Structures are given as structure tokens and as C-alpha cells.
Amino acid sequence: SRYQRVDEALPPNWEARIDSHGRIFYVDHVNRTTTWQRPTAPPAP
């Protein structure tokens, strides 16, 4: 859903941030990219 819980676990090396307008975006520290779409953790084997 559009309103996912912010405290749900993100994949490793990802961080949720809030911009100056109060919107949540996500930072990938490995690839040094950002996205508005919440990343999903790969399925557990």
C-alpha cells in the first residue's frame, strides 16, 4: 500500500530520510542513489 510503515526493515545499506517538504525518500548508501520508491528486501532463501 502507499502508506507503508516507516519502521519496517529496509534492505541492508538503505536508509529512510525526510526531505524539506516532509516527504519520505530512500538512500542507497552502496550505489549512492536515492529513490521515492521504498526498496524491498530480496526474498529470504
Rank of each mutant, 00 (worst) to 15 (best):
E8D: 14
Q37A: 11
R5T: 15
E15R: 03
H29V: 07
D19E: 01
A9V: 10
P39V: 00
I24V: 06
T33S: 12
T34M: 06
Q37K: 12
R38F: 04
R38M: 05
I24M: 10
Y26P: 01
A41Q: 12
D19C: 04
P43H: 09
T34V: 04
P39M: 01
D7S: 07
R2T: 14
D7F: 03
T34W: 04
A44P: 06
A44Q: 14
D7G: 06
N13F: 09
I18R: 13
T35K: 01
E15D: 06
D19P: 00
S1F: 14
W14N: 03
E15T: 06
A16L: 04
P43V: 14
V27I: 10
A16N: 01
A44M: 12
Q37P: 01
A44G: 10
P39D: 01
H29Y: 09
R5H: 13
D28R: 00
Q4H: 06
R23E: 15
P39K: 01
D7N: 09
I18H: 15
W36E: 12
A16M: 04
F25P: 02
Y3V: 08
P45C: 05
R2G: 12
E15S: 07
P11A: 04
F25C: 04
I24G: 02
T40M: 12
D7R: 04
Y26L: 00
A16H: 00
P43A: 11
A9M: 14
V27Y: 12
Y26G: 02
I24R: 07
Q37I: 15
R32C: 11
P39G: 01
T40S: 12
N31Q: 10
H29C: 08
V27P: 06
Q4A: 08
R17K: 14
Y26M: 00
T33A: 11
L10V: 06
V30L: 09
V6L: 13
P12S: 07
G22W: 00
R5D: 15
P12I: 11
T40Y: 08
H29D: 04
W14C: 02
I18Q: 14
Y26S: 01
P42L: 08
I18F: 15
A44T: 12
W14G: 03
L10Q: 03
R2F: 01
I18Y: 15
A16W: 02
R23S: 08
S20L: 07
V30I: 03
T33G: 04
Q37S: 11
Y26T: 00
L10I: 07
W14P: 02
D7L: 02
E15V: 08
P43M: 09
E15N: 01
R38N: 05
I24P: 09
T40Q: 06
R38D: 05
V30E: 13
P45V: 15
R5G: 13
V30P: 04
T35P: 00
P11D: 03
T40E: 14
H21R: 07
V30S: 11
L10N: 03
D7W: 03
E8V: 15
N13E: 06
H21Y: 05
H21T: 08
N13G: 12
L10M: 11
R38E: 06
L10D: 04
T34K: 05
A16Q: 11
A16E: 09
D19V: 00
Y3K: 11
T35E: 04
H29P: 05
W36F: 10
D19W: 00
W36C: 07
T34D: 05
R17G: 05
R32G: 12
R32P: 03
V30A: 13
A16V: 03
T40I: 08
S1Q: 12
T34A: 04
R38A: 06
A41M: 12
P11N: 03
T33N: 09
P39N: 01
Y3N: 15
Y26H: 02
T40H: 09
P12W: 04
A9T: 13
E8S: 10
Q37W: 06
S1L: 14
L10W: 01
V27G: 02
P43K: 11
Q4P: 08
P45Q: 14
A41Y: 11
F25H: 09
R2K: 15
Q37N: 15
A44R: 11
S1K: 15
R23Y: 02
A41P: 10
V30T: 12
R2P: 12
P42W: 03
W36D: 10
T34S: 06
F25T: 06
W14Q: 03
I24Q: 07
R23L: 04
S1M: 15
Q4C: 08
A16R: 07
Y3G: 07
A44D: 12
R2H: 10
I18T: 15
R23T: 10
R17P: 01
L10Y: 03
A41I: 10
T40P: 13
A41C: 12
Y3L: 12
D28Y: 01
N31F: 03
R23V: 08
A41E: 08
S20H: 12
R32T: 08
D28N: 14
R5L: 10
V27S: 04
D28C: 01
R38V: 05
Y3E: 05
Q4L: 14
V27H: 05
T34R: 03
T33M: 14
T33C: 15
D19S: 06
A41G: 10
G22D: 06
P43S: 13
S20E: 14
V30C: 12
N31A: 09
H21P: 00
Q37T: 14
W14K: 02
D7K: 04
I18S: 13
W36V: 08
R32W: 04
N31S: 13
Y26K: 02
Y26N: 00
W14M: 07
H29G: 07
G22V: 00
P39E: 02
W14L: 02
D28S: 02
R17V: 07
T35H: 05
I18P: 05
N31K: 11
E15C: 08
R23I: 15
I24T: 11
P42H: 07
R17H: 11
A44Y: 05
R17Y: 14
E15G: 03
G22S: 04
R5E: 15
D19Q: 00
S1E: 15
I24K: 09
F25W: 03
Y3H: 06
I24C: 09
S20W: 03
P43T: 13
T33Q: 13
P11F: 01
D28P: 00
R17T: 02
P12M: 09
P42T: 08
T35C: 06
D19G: 05
W14A: 05
P45S: 13
A9G: 10
R38S: 04
P11R: 01
R38Q: 06
N13S: 05
F25M: 05
R17N: 06
W36T: 08
A16D: 01
T40C: 08
R23P: 01
R23K: 11
G22C: 00
R2Q: 15
Y3C: 12
I18E: 11
A9I: 09
P11E: 03
F25G: 03
D28H: 10
F25D: 01
I18V: 12
S1C: 13
P42F: 04
D7V: 02
R17Q: 11
R17M: 14
R2D: 11
R2I: 11
L10T: 05
W14T: 02
S20M: 14
R32Q: 13
G22H: 05
H21N: 11
P12H: 09
P45M: 08
H29E: 08
P45L: 03
D7T: 03
R17C: 06
I18M: 14
S20F: 14
T35G: 02
N13H: 06
Y26C: 00
D28W: 00
Y26E: 03
T34P: 01
I18W: 07
L10A: 00
W36N: 12
G22Q: 06
H29L: 11
P43Y: 04
D7A: 08
T40K: 08
P39T: 00
P43R: 08
V27R: 03
V6F: 15
H29K: 13
V6P: 15
V6E: 13
T34C: 08
W14E: 02
G22R: 04
D28A: 00
A9K: 15
S1I: 13
H21I: 03
I18G: 04
Y26A: 01
S1N: 07
I24L: 07
T40N: 09
S20Y: 07
S20N: 07
G22F: 01
E8L: 12
N13K: 05
N13P: 05
S20T: 13
P12F: 01
D7E: 10
T33I: 15
Q4D: 12
P42Q: 12
R32Y: 00
Q4S: 13
N13M: 13
G22A: 03
H29I: 10
V6T: 15
S20G: 12
R2Y: 02
R38Y: 04
G22M: 01
P39C: 01
S20C: 11
I18C: 09
A44L: 08
A44E: 13
D7P: 12
Q4W: 07
H21Q: 15
R2N: 14
D7C: 05
H29F: 01
W36L: 07
H21A: 11
V30R: 06
D7Y: 09
V6Y: 06
